[in-house]
Design a protein around this nucleic acid. Structure first.
Lengths: 209, 209, 209, 209
DNA sequence: CATGAATGAGGCTTCATTCAT
DNA sequence: GATGAATGAAGCCTCATTCAT
């Protein structure tokens, strides 16, 4: 038991070291020796815990997904108030937590790239597909709730808006990654105000701040 | 004159062959020999036109940007009607043209990845930053036009909505890339209906179709 | 301690294998794989000990210099007798030790060539300059000693004679390298007899044998 | 006839351009394109006059040998006076003419290197062997002449002294090549004074200047 | 378990040479 | 004759992976 725990710890140690190095140098720019150095262990040790570089990379991916999902779930369950308020709160929580780790954002791009072309593309693609589906589900549930409570208009297509929203969050962070002068949080809040006004059944004044 | 033209032709030939191979196998999965074979030329010939694999990759990037920008500009200039109609038309045109080359979408992911970690990251990052800025500019001009014509509400922040929209288009295509069962065109139209309703100064019924 | 020793041993192993192959095929005619084969190791192993082919070549040069210098020093310290006798003895010792490794003489030519044109030319040129200076110093000290002891004429310029002598030894070996029928030892002894007679303060009969 | 002359001219043009580039960059560091540029012609043209890079290099060698031999012969035939004076005059003439083209001296090293390891080594080795033999012959004839005229001692071995002398000239230039601060002309003159004194049948005071 | 020295497959790039114009 | 675009053989070097200690 304790043994297993120690093993898990070292596994995590390696994963987090690998995440750091992959984020800085990209998958192909990373050499195993760098990860070992970052983790403070020997090169060979990595192969005691992972089958290959690819295997380790996928483990980093899973760790990353788990981490961000966990955070997203915390954000969502903590929400209260009207559907509009909850949407805006979700927007804030997500962007804030991602902005906190914008230096890790390059990992996401590596994951996208891996899903497009690496030998592991199938595994990545499937994980992304399912991840996006889950996330769209969560957001669309939130919107449907607003519709049911007559806060949002009944003719709104919750799934479409959810899909777009999920994408918008991704893409604003992407733009922030490219452009230091771009403020995704303010941008998103102002955009959400417009969108929520479009969702709302009663005309409302926009006030994002 | 003719000589220069021939040289340009061969350059383009190589770029397009490279785009194909890079899209299929990714930057690192691609070997120069494959590109040469795809282009029907000798390996060494590529080095008559490009300094290195990286140089060729960046040339593919520039070619891709130019191509998509050209298409985007055509879409925009061709627009007529109200601001709402023009926004929706732009949505349709962009998504349609991208869906036509969804098999090339993996290139975009390679470009993102390159901007995150490759040795060329600065060049790519700058190009993306500028590309996004330009595109946000175009879309926000369109929205501001709607505000000026009192079609859209004056309190709308055109820049924020433009940034979000630009991102949404990107991200819906991304989701489509991961999920064959995902229909980004319909999704985007339904979402646009909501968004436009949020932008509009007069209450309006949503009818995306 | 032992680890370091093993590392040094393998380094030496590679250097000596490389010396052999470089001597046979020249710097540019040598491929790394040949050296690895000669050393009985894998190609990659060489790069654990040397940064590049050039780096290895320079290491061979340093090893060679050290080796021949060591031998020269042994020859010189072992000398006894009159200045004339010591000069003649030095002549014999040097030529004999070089003749023992005439098959390695091509290395010297490779080193010269490297000092003339390779990317490493500065490093080589400097090493040669210093090597020749040191050697001239040693020989001229010997001659000055003869002058001080009134064995040699006072008006002799020790430095010039030393420089010429050092060169003569080089060049006789060079001629021997080109011409199997050329006997540099006998030639040098007969020449030394004349030279020593020119140095000597008292007329003396020449008897090289 | 005129056609042949033009052909010869272009051949010479290429050889001299090649000599320049080979001297600067060495045989292996030189690429055919550089020679073509230096000669102001097209790359392919070189192959109209020479079979290969090696062939061209050997032609440069022959041109170089011819050039230096011609100069040496001029020096020798112009000599007058006693054997001692002629020897010293030869020394001066040779060193002066070589010092005039010390920037070409690296070519000699390339030739040596080629004789040691290139695929053409046999051709080069033979040429050097013969060249040295011829040169030793010339010098030893001069010395024998001095012996016959009783200017030099009868027990001197003309061949050995000639071989050493020929080598000394080579090697002093070599040292000058490595060491900017080394003056081979003065050095050689002072050395020659000693040597001539060793050769002379009557005791003589050394006065190199 | 942990290590890191050893390995060799693999890929980018160079450049002598060819040959169609 | 002259040219230079095209070629592909060849070689340096990297780095994921193995395995003896």
């Amino acid at each position: 038991m304790e043994d297993k725990a120690r093993k898990q710890n070292k596994r995590s140690l390696i994963i987090e070291a690998a995440a750091k190095v992959f984020a800085n140098r990209g998958y192909n720019g990373t050499i195993i020796a760098d990860i070992a150095t970052e983790a403070g262990i020997g090169k060979g040790t990595i192969y005691e815990y992972f089958l290959s570089k690819e295997d380790l990379f996928f483990a980093v991916f899973q760790w990353f997904v788990q981490m961000t999902e966990a955070e997203a779930k915390v954000s969502i369950t903590a929400l209260g108030g009207s559907a509009s308020e909850r949407l805006m709160a979700l927007n804030d929580a997500l962007l804030r937590s991602w902005l906190d780790m914008l230096d890790m954002y390059s990992l996401v791009m590596e994951f996208w790239s891996a899903s497009a072309s690496s030998k592991m593309r199938q595994r990545f693609k499937q994980a992304f597909r399912e991840g996006y589906r889950d996330f769209r589900q969560i957001v669309s549930a939130l919107i449907r709730d607003g519709i049911e409570k007559a806060e949002f208009r009944p003719e709104v297509d919750a799934e479409s808006v959810a899909a777009a929203l999920v994408g918008t969050w991704d893409a604003l962070l992407l733009q922030a990654w490219f452009d230091e002068g771009f403020d995704p949080l303010t941008t998103s809040r102002r955009f959400m105000a417009v969108l929520i006004s479009g969702l709302a059944s009663k005309p409302q004044v926009i006030s994002p701040s």
